[in-house]
Every structure is written in structure tokens, then in C-alpha cells.
Amino acid sequence: MFHSKITGLGFYVPPNVVTNDDLSKTIDTNDAWIQERTGIQERRHIIKGEDTTTTMGVKAAEIAIERAGVAKEDIDFVVFATLSPDYYFPGPGVLVQRDLGLRTVGALDVRNQCSGFIYALSVADQYIKTGMYKNILVIGSEVHSTGLDMTTRGRSVSVIFGDGAGAAVLSREEDLTKGILSTHLHSEGVHAEELSLKAPGMGGRWVTDILADNDPDDESYYPYMNGQFVFKNAVVRFSEVINEGLIANNLTVSDIDMLIPHQANLRISQFIQGKFKLNDDQVFNNIQKYGNTTAASIPIALTEAWEQGKIKEGDTLVLAAFGSGFTWASAIIKW
């Protein structure tokens, strides 16, 4: 029996900074309106032709692999979490295997949106715990900007999301007091349509329908979010899944050294921080700079927190996420 340990972290965001004031030039909004509702000040958008979900994932992965001190030949498996793949198929996992020049290792794509990175982390953790693999590359990467309704009609969603990628290398750890202690995964599909993108899709609005209709009022190919309903569910599920992880490991809130929540909305993170009575040094947020990068948000935040010295050896770390599906998840890690 082994544990898995994060041995390398990396992230990449496009250099193109888009401020709230930039958005106000094409959308009826303003900096105060956006910050009051989301806490976001700016986000990154790709420059078309320069970055994709895969290329950003590759750039983050190269940093993580170097920091892990392993060679690319040592990577045994790839798990790639995203809702925005370069192609409808194949998924980006195989593109990363190709572009990094890895051996012909397995590549798995995870489609669990905002919870995607923790789901991917959990899958990788099980493979290492059972002894099947020794070093697994886990990536979360998203390009939202090319699929958003960048008009006033879509402002409640479009101002929230940004582009970016984060990556981690998980390696075998024989000391069972270290590494990932447990992961906890949940879903509630009855609310699937409350945060969704229905087209294109084999069971709904397909590309040929959209092209044939050429209907400017067709919103089915833009993301939809029932914001208040999502918020109400998020704060409940965040709390539940964090407590579930603590109880599973005989820990209490006082044992948390660092909570890194999915960067969905700063108001959600602040609500959870207040509910658990955590101080500012115990919670890491960077949504102010990057917006909501869905599956990339936790690995980006985790990397930044580590780079800034906010995570130290021996710390108890909690990762938690909630998002479309609905899905929610947590991971308890002894650093």
C-alpha cells in the first residue's frame, strides 16, 4: 500500500490581461458591478492562434515535471480535466502525450467541470495507491473566452470566466502519514441544467442545427447559469464535503492549515471562510486576478500558494470544489 504525494506543481495563464474596464467597452457593465458580485478585478483571455486548452496544459505540465525532479520518461499516466477540449474528440490527454513526447502511456480525460481537478486527482491517487503507477501527470486547463456571449445579454456569465492551466505530478510515497489522505466525490444530476452548455451535443442542439438555423437569438451554444440557485447549493455542498474529509481523517477545523477552494466566486469563498471561522492566512484566493478558470482554478491557486510559501511541509491542506453537474469534491492532503 502506498500514498500519492504531489511532488511538482506548475501553472500557466495567457499574457493577455482583460480588466473589468476592458469588458465595459463592449458589455453594459462596470468594475464596481463585477467586483461587488464576484470579487473579480481581471482575468486572462487567450489570443487566438497562440494558446489552446492543450498548449496551456503542456506549458503548466512542463513546469510541474521539472519541479518534481522526474524525467518525462518517468511519467506513467496522464489525467486531463477540462470542459473545453481543443476538439470534440479526441480529448486533450492524448494531445498532451504527443506534445510532451511521453512514452505511449495511457491518457484519461475527465469531464467534471469545476470539480474536475479534484476528480482527476482522486483517480490518479487510486492508481498510485494500488501500485499500478508511480508517477502520474494531472492537468486542469480551460479556454472559456472563445465560447462566451461577450454582449450585455451574457454578462452575468461572461464576466466571471477566464482562461488558464495548472498541473501537478503525483508520485509514490511510502510514508503513509504524508500525501493525499483521502478524496471525496459527489454528484446530483437532477440539477444538471442549472449550470450547463447544451449545444453542440448529440442529444440536443448539434452543430448542423445551429448552422442551418443561423438564429442570432439562439442561446443554446452559450453557457447558462442559474446564479442564485448555484450559489445556494454551493455553500451547502462546500461545507458538507469539507466536513466529510475532516471526519474521515479524525481532523477538526482547527487542524486546517490551508483551504484552497475552487475559485468560483469570491463571495462563496468568503462565506465558507466565515462559516468555518478561518482567518485570511488559512484560505487562499486568487480569483481576483484570474476569474473562474473551472478545472484549472485549484491547480493554479495551489501552485501560487506554494510558490508564495503559504504551504509548508507538514501542513494539512484541504481542497474543495463545487460546480456544474452538480458535482462537488474534496481532498485532504498532508504536505
Rank of each mutant, 00 (worst) to 15 (best):
L319S: 02
H262T: 01
S122P: 03
I136K: 04
G49F: 14
G162K: 01
E307A: 06
I75Y: 10
S156E: 15
V143W: 03
L9P: 08
Y290C: 06
D109K: 04
D28V: 12
G189K: 01
I300M: 04
V253N: 02
S269R: 00
T54K: 11
F322T: 04
L108Y: 14
L137G: 06
T208V: 14
L278K: 06
L102I: 01
S24C: 09
N226H: 11
I118R: 05
D22G: 04
W335Y: 07
V18L: 10
Q270S: 09
A305H: 03
G227P: 09
A68C: 07
K48F: 15
T327G: 00
V18D: 01
E304R: 08
V94W: 15
D213K: 12
N265E: 07
N226F: 15
P216T: 06
K198C: 04
T52P: 07
T130D: 06
V17F: 12
D209M: 08
D217K: 04
I136Q: 03
G323K: 06
I65L: 00
N265A: 00
M202Q: 12
E193N: 09
N292Q: 01
E193H: 11
I46R: 02
N233T: 08
K25N: 12
Q35F: 15
R103Y: 14
F322R: 04
E219L: 14
N286S: 07
E194A: 10
G69Y: 10
K178P: 00
R153C: 11
V169W: 02
D257G: 00
T38E: 00
V235N: 02
V143H: 06
A301G: 02
E307K: 08
L23Y: 14
R153L: 13
S122Y: 10
G147S: 10
D109S: 10
I47A: 08
D163Q: 03
L181Q: 04
L100Y: 13
L266W: 11
N233P: 08
D213S: 10
E66N: 07
R155Q: 12
V241W: 02
T26C: 15
T53N: 05
I63M: 09
R111Q: 11
N279P: 04
K25H: 13
S196H: 12
